[in-house]
Every structure is written in C-alpha cells, then in structure tokens.
C-alpha cells in the first residue's frame, strides 16, 4: 500500500508503543515482528492518526492492542472485510491487516482471496507459525503433512497450503516473504509493502516457541540460512550459499540449482524480475521449498498499475456526481408523481 507522505513528522518507535502489557509467551516471534512494525511506521512520513491496524483472532491478531494507532481486533478470519470497510470509508488511511495462518488461510481464506483480487491499498502481514497458537497447538492449514498435534495424534493427513501460491493465485499485486529472525529484512519488506499501491501480501515466518518451536529453523537458523535462504533483489541473479557460489537456473520450465564456476556464470542464472507481468516466474519461486531448494525471501512479485478497488469506486461516484444531480427532494418525488389538491 502507499499513502502519500503528507508532512515531515518526528515520530519514533516510542510513539507507537501502547502502555498495555504485551501478553505473548516469552520468546514468541511475534515480539520481533511488533518491534519491526513499530520501527517501520515512524519512518513512513505518515501522521500517526492515519494508521489503522485491523486483525482477526489468534495470538498474532492481538497485535492492534500493542500499537498506539487506531486499531480494531475483530473476529476470527474476517479482518479482510473490516479492513476493506475502513479503507473504502476513508482511502487516506494507512491500513495494516494482521492475520495468522489459521485466521487468514483457514476460516478467513475466502475473504483474503477477495481482498487480494480487489487490490485495496492495504498491507497484509500473515504471521505463519504453521500452527494454531491461541487454541493451544492444533495443526493449521500450513502445517506439513504428518504434523502430530493434540488433534492429530497420528499426524495430519491434509496437504498444506502455500501462502505465497495462494496470494499469487488470487492475483495479488504484491507478494513477499520475510522472517521474524531478520529485523532488517522485515523493516525493508514492510517499507516495500507500504510503498506499493494495491494490496501488499507479506508472509512472515514466525516462531511459536510453545506449540511449534523451531519449525523454520531448517531454513532460518544461523547455521542453515546461508545455504537455505535465497534473498531476492530486483535485477540481481538468484545467488545463494555461504560463499555466494550457488545459483538458480531455468531448465525448461523447471528451476535447478547450479554451482557457479566451471563455465557457469551469473549470466546463466535467473534474474530476479518481480514486476514481470507473467506470474509464472513468481510461481516458480513460490514453489521452491525446503529441502529441495533454498527458500526465497523478499519481494517475489510486484505489479504496478492495476487500479485499486477504492480508487475505482470513488471514481465512479465522482463521475456520477459530475453527471447527475444529488437533489434529494427530486429523488423522493421521482418522475411519475401526481399532485392532489383539496
């Protein structure tokens, strides 16, 4: 989403902190994300009263209580609808929607889909901990097959949904991923989300220390991340590895990992092109998962130029107002009235 920078303001992180006690479990990844958002907003040049944070239900959705902005903690899965209403009522507001993997992709997936396709200028942060945190640890629609939880003692049997593929399938105009372990990357990604005009979808890998601890460690831990994370940068070749010696090349329609050197150079690799109108490229990236591929983080797709829902709606109103009168008495009287005299 993008809101025009209205004035220089001297906001700092402190201005976005509420006096409320934060009630997440010690060590929960949500703290880092809260910190990142509180550090991002003051840098956007938007007055504090213009921010509205809307969430559904879940540990992650407690977020608005901890943000000293306007906020609405709604009901399970329905945050996209409330955020839509806020934005349509006042398109000048900077609307941030917080959801979880259960909230956004289970009970509320339908609404999320419609928010993304309508392309309202809203930032969506989906905290993916691959578990239902608030209800104490049942598997979620992003849990891997075979996930053993209290509700799936023999392991879950259903195929998980990939949040990025879901967003791409909904034709979101901005799709990104970041991790609660990388403050700098989160802030960068949130800023990019804000800069995009249209719905910005950001999946945040989030660690639930209590019910799904270390679920992303295989890709985000200090030891693994060099070889397992692929940091996307526009216009740069897809290179990863501790020594930056591995890359992704396209073989037909399939990506493959290659080692640089021995006649293979940067020119042979895929160049990151988030604005490619063809979504095939972004889909290839989104499907690259552990352990076969490094996991991409950063902005997978950013498509400019599609009109936002609220702009189109307001334009129609302005057009109608330029053409037809808004005389209420005439409306009530209509064209086929008659007069009774006594």
């Amino acid at each position: 989403m993008s809101t025009t920078i209205t004035e220089e303001n001297n906001l700092t992180k402190k201005d976005f902190v509420t006096p409320n006690d934060v009630r997440w479990c010690p060590g929960c990844g949500d703290y880092a994300i809260l910190n990142a958002v509180q550090r991002t907003l003051p840098e956007l040049g938007i007055p504090r009263e213009q921010f509205v944070v809307v969430s559904g239900i879940g540990c992650s959705s407690r977020f608005p209580y901890y943000m000293n902005t306007y906020g609405f903690h709604t009901i399970h899965g329905r945050a996209p609808t409330v955020a839509t209403g806020v934005k349509v009522a006042n398109p000048d507001l900077s609307v941030w929607m917080i959801t979880g993997d259960g909230d956004g992709l289970s009970i509320g997936a339908n609404h999320l889909l419609h928010l993304l396709r309508r392309n309202l200028d809203i930032n969506v942060l989906l905290f993916n901990n691959r578990i239902y945190g608030l209800t104490k640890g049942q598997y979620s629609p992003t849990s891997e097959v075979g996930k053993k939880t209290k509700s799936t003692p023999l392991g879950s049997v259903d195929h998980p949904i990939n949040p990025l593929l879901f967003a791409l399938g909904s034709e979101a105009t901005f799709v990104a991923r970041t991790t609660d372990t990388d403050m700098k990357h989160m802030i960068e990604t949130f800023k990019a989300a804000q800069a995009h005009k249209g719905t910005s979808f950001v999946e945040v890998f989030q660690n639930c220390v209590i019910f799904n601890n270390k679920t992303f460690d295989s890709v985000t831990s200090r030891d693994a991340k060099q070889d397992q994370l692929l940091t996307l940068e526009e216009g740069k070749p897809l290179v990863f590895g501790a020594n930056k010696d591995k890359g992704i090349r396209l073989n037909g329609l399939d990506p493959e990992i290659v080692t640089l050197g021995d006649g293979i150079g940067h020119d042979d690799l895929l160049i990151h092109q988030p604005s490619n109108p063809n979504s095939a490229y972004a889909n290839i990236l989104a499907q690259m998962t552990y352990p076969t591929f490094p996991t991409p983080v950063g902005v997978l797709r950013q498509l400019d130029g599609r009109e936002t829902y609220e702009d189109a709606l307001i334009q129609q109103i302005e057009y109608a107002q330029s053409k037809d009168s808004d005389n209420l008495q005439e409306l009530l009287t209509g064209q086929n009235s008659w007069v009774v005299e006594n």
């Binding site: 609808t81 409330v82 955020a83 839509t84 209403g85 934005k87 349509v88 009522a89 006042n90 609404h111």
Partner: peptide, 29 residues
C-alpha cells in the same frame, strides 16, 4: 444512486458484507 455519493460494495458473502459495514462504521460512515 452514486450521484448521491453512496458507496456500494457487493461483498463476497453476508459475513463480509457485515464486516465491510462495521469497518466503515468504525471509520465514520
């Protein structure tokens, strides 16, 4: 009646219709 400045949203279901209305009410409409 767009000429009366009315914003109409055809939502994806009745739950969403209610959510949109509630969000917009919060924002002052």
């Amino acid at each position: 009646l767009k000429n009366f400045g009315i914003k109409c949203v055809q939502a994806e279901d009745e739950i969403a219709a209610m959510g949109v209305a509630l969000g917009a009410s919060f924002a002052g409409d």
